[in-house]
Simulated assay, not measured.
Amino acid sequence: MDKRLIWLAVGAFATSTVAFVFAGLLPLISASAGISVSDAGHLVTAYSLAYAIGTPILSAIAGAADRRRVIALALVCFMAGNGLAAASDSFFTLLCAQVIMGMSAGLFAATAQATAVALASPEHRTRAVATVLGGTTFAVALGAPLAALVGNLAGWRSAYLVVACLALICLTVLWTQLPRGLPGLKLSLSERIAALGRPGILPSLGVTLLYLTGAFMIIAYMAPLALAAGLPVAVLPGMLLAFGIGAVAGNYASGVLADRLGPSRMIVMALLASASICVAMSAIIELLPPELAGPLLVGIMLPWGFIGWTFPPAQASRLVGHAPELANLTLPLNVSAMYFGIAAGSFIGGRLLEIAPASELGLAAAAFPLAALVVIALTRKSRRATIPVG
């Protein structure tokens, strides 16, 4: 395997860790800033919106520019955002830092995947992209819990500094190893979003958005859930680790299961299972005493991570199936839909915490994968209605 792909994956690991570490840092940040955890959740919303909106815009602006320079610029801005977060003296400054990190992380992700394709031979391009995306998976499994642990031991600012140092190492290696003059694909923003008009694309993106909305109503606010179950905040790195281990296993199993069952069946199963686990979380906290609720909530993280991470690969496969020739456009749009969902989930979850106990998060979150199932059913019904008879 080309070693440069590994370093692109490490860059994806560093830039993606920030997106998933919030669950472990929000209680620390809220205590430091003197605000509620739900208000601190605006950081997740700001980062995710910047990622979702900034990625297609910045990718269009970067156009055919040298990918080596674009990757370097993205990593430099990402490090600057982490440095600003670590040095911030107000919540507003920290919010601005999230916007910088979100936009630069999105630009890096899009450019790194395109660079992986350019570096690989035609028969190995899928494997090359999978290698880079593997960095994101391991960010969930290892990056988030480790950064949360660092934050709990040495303060939340240190977590940002550690991520920035890792990004610096990646920048140094990639700047020296990537070839000069590797051009990007010049597409306007209108060309990038034109794929939305193809049959099946927009409903599929809606399914992605709804699924991630429900998931991040819980992921972003694991701390209030843990407290409601009688657990200390210090247990959050362990919860994130259990979720991450399940995510790695689910990501691997998804490809095998989708090949056997088909991506559509895999997605339906993931949506149903996710809604069931969300309801189970609320039931555990509401109905059981703390000595049982706490351990069960930690234990359910692993199967929830497994189920949660069977969805993205199957959904990507289903999306590509709608228009294989537009995969280079539809897959980035799917990533934007994911981060719009993360932003929506963190915002809705935060507002719910202002008016209801944390135990209600699971019940509310379950509504979104169920809504995604309705979208799938209506899309299928619409397709049948448009198929001519005879």
Score class of each variant (00 low, 15 high):
297 L>T: 10
381 K>A: 14
98 Q>G: 04
126 T>M: 13
341 G>I: 10
366 A>Y: 04
303 P>F: 11
102 G>L: 09
28 L>A: 09
364 A>N: 06
10 V>L: 13
388 P>M: 05
357 P>G: 13
3 K>Y: 08
249 A>F: 03
148 A>M: 02
65 A>Y: 01
220 A>Y: 05
241 L>G: 03
238 G>F: 12
249 A>D: 04
165 C>I: 13
265 R>T: 07
190 S>V: 14
370 L>T: 05
272 L>Y: 08
382 S>N: 14
71 I>Q: 01
112 A>K: 04
347 F>R: 13
133 L>P: 03
149 L>I: 03
346 S>Q: 06
376 I>C: 13
156 W>T: 02
35 I>V: 15
84 L>V: 09
168 L>P: 00
35 I>S: 04
33 A>I: 07
254 S>C: 06
303 P>K: 13
301 M>Q: 11
233 V>T: 14
377 A>M: 10
112 A>S: 15
276 S>K: 03
349 G>R: 02
55 T>G: 03
159 A>L: 03
131 T>R: 12
355 I>G: 02
27 P>F: 03
319 L>W: 08
260 R>E: 00
2 D>Y: 00
189 L>V: 15
226 A>R: 06
321 G>F: 04
36 S>Y: 08
322 H>S: 03
159 A>C: 02
99 V>R: 11
76 V>I: 13
159 A>F: 00
320 V>D: 11
28 L>E: 08
278 C>G: 06
47 Y>P: 05
260 R>Y: 02
262 G>Q: 06
146 L>G: 00
213 T>H: 10
293 A>I: 11
34 G>R: 10
324 P>V: 13
136 T>K: 01
24 G>E: 07
269 M>P: 00
306 F>T: 01
288 L>S: 12
5 L>Q: 02
350 G>Q: 06
254 S>P: 00
121 S>K: 11
211 Y>E: 12
184 G>W: 14
125 R>E: 13
135 G>F: 07
66 D>P: 08
315 Q>I: 07
338 M>A: 10
20 F>L: 10
266 M>S: 06
267 I>L: 04
287 L>C: 12
6 I>A: 12
220 A>C: 05
